[in-house]
Nucleic acid binder design. Structure first.
Length: 190
DNA sequence: AACCATTGCAACCGCAACAAC
DNA sequence: TGTTGTTGCGGTTGCAATGGT
């Protein structure tokens, strides 16, 4: 296992990879009691063998109570495309205009859904015109015209909040809904 | 049923900007 | 003013889930 360069003094092992439910609970619990702070300190104080960076990412992208996940609406998709045409890959900037959405989610969404459409539409339209091999902004504008999201859009997935049930199973023990985690947190904290 | 390919997403990495000392 | 630590961002990767043959 690799070690973070920043923990040379203590030489504490650093966990990587998927977060467990236990770690999530620790983080939620700690932040609801102490608030967000300096992430490295927070990670240490909470007893998490994670880097501050990892804690921050986990909190911002997943655990935060106001984070919305899945079910990107056609309106949101349209907005993402508009803003991306305007700003390019400024995901955090774009995310600020979509309440509850994270830059990571938007970035993933763009890469997995929209960029796929762009490629398809691009290879389609390239038969007609061979211009523009430019990056994000220009090609996006082009695509924005090429595919009308309201026409071609079909909901990518109806139930992304499709947690595999109220209880974790053997194979997916991390699959807890945020409601579950937060209610557990509320039970834990007095 | 078994295998392989593709997809979607969580998490990591590297870098730059900023703040504190 | 230089150094060090922290934060935020964008790019990339790893892997589980899903689909296709």
């Amino acid at each position: 296992m690799k070690k973070s360069p920043s923990n040379s003094s203590q030489d504490v092992e650093v966990r990587k990879g998927p977060w467990t439910m236990e770690e999530d609970l620790i983080l939620i619990n700690y932040i609801s009691n102490h608030g967000e702070g300096v992430w490295n300190t927070l990670a240490r104080s909470a007893g998490l063998k994670r880097t501050g960076k990892s804690c921050r990412l986990r909190w911002l992208n997943y655990l935060r109570p106001d984070v919305r996940r899945g079910n990107i609406t056609p309106e949101e998709q349209l907005l993402i495309m508009e803003l991306h045409a305007k700003w390019g890959n400024r995901w955090s900037k774009i995310a600020k205009h979509l309440p509850g959405r994270t830059d990571n989610e938007i970035k993933n969404y763009w890469r997995t859904r929209i960029q796929k459409h762009i490629k398809q539409a691009g290879s389609f339209s390239s038969q007609k015109s061979s211009e523009h091999t430019d990056q994000a902004t220009t090609s996006t504008t082009q695509t924005f015209n090429a595919i009308n999201p309201m026409q071609t859009y079909s909901p990518p997935y109806d139930n992304v909040q499709n947690f595999s049930g109220p209880f974790p199973t053997e194979t997916n023990e991390n699959m807890w809904s945020m409601e579950d985690l937060w209610s557990m947190q509320l039970l834990n904290s007095d």
